[in-house]
Amino acid sequence: EAHAAIDTFTKYLDIDEDFATVLVEEGFSTLEELAYVPMKELLEIEGLDEPTVEALRERAKNALATIAQ
């Protein structure tokens, strides 16, 4: 499951495998979680700032909209 989540994140969020791995290690496994989890939870991840989190959430929401079509 972790590998599938990493693949999904790299494909749809335009991030590298290392960043995707950090997200999975922090407990995220779906685009929905990244799109809708409280921003505070993402900001608790070391190295993430508000602009990065906002961009990540926007990419996740856009990916979900694209997949739904």
Rank of each mutant, 00 (worst) to 15 (best):
A65S: 11
N62T: 14
L43T: 06
A65W: 03
G47L: 06
A5K: 08
L23C: 01
D49T: 10
I15Q: 01
N62I: 14
E33I: 08
V53K: 04
E44H: 14
H3C: 10
R59F: 03
D18A: 15
A4D: 11
K40S: 14
Y36R: 10
E58D: 10
E25N: 15
L42R: 04
L42A: 06
S29A: 09
A55R: 15
F19A: 06
F19Q: 08
V53R: 05
E25Q: 14
I15S: 01
L56T: 01
Y12D: 03
F9I: 04
I67T: 06
V22D: 03
D7W: 03
L42D: 03
G47F: 08
P38Y: 02
L13E: 02
M39E: 07
L42Y: 05
A68V: 09
F19H: 04
A68T: 10
E58V: 08
E1S: 13
E54A: 13
L34G: 01
D18H: 14
E58A: 06
N62Y: 05
Y36F: 14
Y12L: 09
E33T: 06
D16P: 10
D7F: 04
H3Q: 15
K61E: 06
A63D: 01
E54Q: 10
A65E: 13
E58M: 04
D49I: 04
A68P: 08
Y12N: 04
A35L: 15
E44K: 15
E25V: 10
D49C: 05
S29K: 14
K40N: 14
E26L: 15
I45Q: 03
K11D: 05
E25S: 14
L42N: 03
T8W: 12
L31H: 01
A5C: 06
A2G: 12
D16L: 07
Q69C: 08
E17Q: 12
N62V: 14
T52S: 10
I6C: 05
V22C: 08
A5I: 15
F9L: 11
L31E: 00
P38H: 06
E44D: 12
F28G: 00
Y36Q: 11
S29T: 15
T8G: 06
S29F: 14
T52P: 02
F19M: 13
I6R: 08
L43P: 04
E1K: 10
E1R: 05
I6A: 05
A63R: 03
Y36A: 11
G27I: 02
T21H: 11
H3V: 13
T8Y: 13
E25Y: 10
E50A: 13
A5D: 04
I45V: 09
L23W: 00
E17F: 13
T30S: 11
T8R: 14
